[in-house]
C-alpha cells in the first residue's frame, strides 16, 4: 500500500492546525486546531504501525486519544472560567503572561 496518501493527508491536517492556531483568536478555534494537530500525528502513527506490522503505533494512538480527551475536559473548564471573568473568548485579551 502506498504510504504517501495518508501521510499527505496528515501533513495537510497538521498544517491546517498550525495555521489556525497561529491565525485564529477564538479560544474554541484554538482548541479545535490542537485536536487537528494531534489527530494528524495519530494518522502518521497508525500508518506506520500498519506499514511495519507493529502494534506500538496503535497503542500510542490510544494513549494520545485519552490524553486529548482529558486535555479537552480541563481546557473547556478553564475557558468557561475565563469567560465568566472577562466575558470574551478573544485570546489576545488574555495577555497576563506579560510580566
Amino acid at each position: 500500500m502506498a504510504l504517501h496518501a495518508p501521510l499527505l493527508v496528515a501533513a495537510a491536517l497538521f498544517s491546517i492546525g498550525v495555521g489556525g492556531f497561529v491565525a485564529r483568536r477564538n479560544v474554541f478555534a484554538l482548541l479545535m486546531c490542537i485536536e487537528l494537530m494531534l489527530n494528524a500525528v495519530n494518522l502518521v502513527f497508525v500508518t506506520f504501525s500498519r506499514q511495519w506490522l507493529s502494534v506500538e503505533g496503535h497503542v500510542t494512538v490510544l494513549l494520545v486519544v485519552a490524553l486529548a480527551a482529558a486535555e479537552a475536559a480541563v481546557a473547556l473548564a478553564i475557558v468557561i472560567m475565563l469567560f465568566r471573568h472577562r466575558e470574551t473568548l478573544d485570546v489576545d485579551v488574555f495577555a497576563s503572561m506579560k510580566e
Binding site: 498550525v18 497561529v22 483568536r25 484554538l30 485570546v91 489576545d92 497576563s96 503572561m97 506579560k98 510580566e99
Partner: peptide, 14 residues
C-alpha cells in the same frame, strides 16, 4: 519578546 500573547509564543515555537 515577552508579549504575553499565546499566539506569539506558538509562532516562535513553530
Amino acid at each position: 519578546a515577552q508579549s504575553g500573547l499565546a499566539r506569539h509564543y506558538a509562532m516562535v515555537m513553530l
